[in-house]
Structure formats: C-alpha cells, structure tokens
Amino acid sequence: MLQVNGLRVAYGGIQAVKGITFHVEEGEMVALIGANGAGKTSTLKALARMLDSAGGSVRYRGKEINRLPAHDLVREGIALVPEGRGVFPRLTVAENLEMGAFIRNDKSEIVRDMAHVYDHFPRLKERETQLAGTLSGGEQQMLAIGRALMSRPKLLLLDEPSMGLAPIMVQKIFEVIRAVAAEGMTILLIEQNAKLALETSKRGYVMESGQITLTDESQALLHNPKVREAYLGE
C-alpha cells in the first residue's frame, strides 16, 4: 500500500533522513522504532507532506504522493496524528471530531463515525462539550486519534502516541490502536517505546541516525540480541 524508496530529508545542510526504503502492506501494522533523533519523526513528517523531502519517492496505492500538498493526502485516505497531539485546544471535543471530518459532507455517516470513535474512547464521550485544551495529555492523544479516524482513512500515521503519557494511559491508548488495527486499518506506528511498539505491530524497522539498520517480523526483533541491547535495556 505504501512504498517508500530512498527517502531523504534535510534541514539546511544537515541530513536527518539519509535515503530510507521501506513498505507497508494493506491491513498490517508496521512499527518504525529508534532512539531520539534517529529521524523517525522527520520521516513521518515527510510522508505526511508537512515537510518537503530532499529526494526519494513515496508511492501510495501506486500513486506518487511525494509532491502532493499536505491537505490533499486526507482525500487520498492518509491521516496523520501529529507528534505532541495536535488537537484544536479552543474547540470542544465534539468540534474537534467534526473538524476531522472536514473533507466529508455525508452528515449521517459522520454522526455514525463519531459514535464509533466514542465507542473506542468512552472517556471522550463523557467530555464531549469540554474544550480540548483542558483535557489531560492522554485524553488529548485519544482525541487526536479519534479526529484522524473521522476522516475515514485507509492508512493511519501515528507519531509517538505514547509520548509524555502515564504508563496506564499508554496501555489504554495502545489497546485502542490494536482494536483499530483489528478492524482492518493499515497503520504506520512511530515509537520510541520499542517494546510496546514491537509487541503491538506485525513487522518493524529499526532506525539509527537517519538510516534503517534492521528489519524483521516484530516478534523476531523483540528477540534479536542487538535490539534487546540497544532498545530494550538489556
């Protein structure tokens, strides 16, 4: 579904992503793990067209999307949950979700999808009329995921959903990510929390200073001595 070839990202003269190649098949969850500064978020930002890449190609369902404007990707079926949440703080929870359906105008379907998001996150239903800026970090992350789902994506890009959250909240969020994946959603997950990401995903890529150094089935990576040493603290 997504085929990335030799993608490069540079900030001024510094290369953050040095030509990486990976792919995501329809219906699978793929994790991209790595330490701080490995270039994971730059990769995702370039995929979502929030950043201009310095080279390489990104093909999505056979179509080159590396030059499309960011706002067109949603129409193609790609939804980004940006790093650090990215909710609209001065809109209510319900308004945030409605904003996620900005490109759609099938009113009754939107209402149904909203109910579905609330099924995933009962907590959001309770806080429906509250301003998003007043939610807790975990609730904001839930809202960001819910908002992305409201565009009915085919491919969901998640940027560090566990960042800065309490362990109990991280568990809750990953439960929902698993549930969404079980419904058949294709997901590319970017995570620092390697253990959690690999336990959740089917396949994984390990990124180190702008390059992909290792790839395998997630279960195998979990038992790979290199990964265990570098990312699982053993």
């Binding site: 979502a48 001065r90 904003m99």
Partner: peptide, 18 residues
C-alpha cells in the same frame, strides 16, 4: 471553521485536509 482550525493548530488543520 477552517479559520478557527488554523488559528488553533496549523499542522492539525492541514492534517484535517484544510
């Protein structure tokens, strides 16, 4: 609504297809 969205968070607004 699109104006309010870019006022609140431009990246999220783009991600919503605005």
């Amino acid at each position: 609504r699109a104006w309010q969205a870019i006022r609140e968070d431009e990246v999220a607004a783009k991600a919503a297809g605005i």
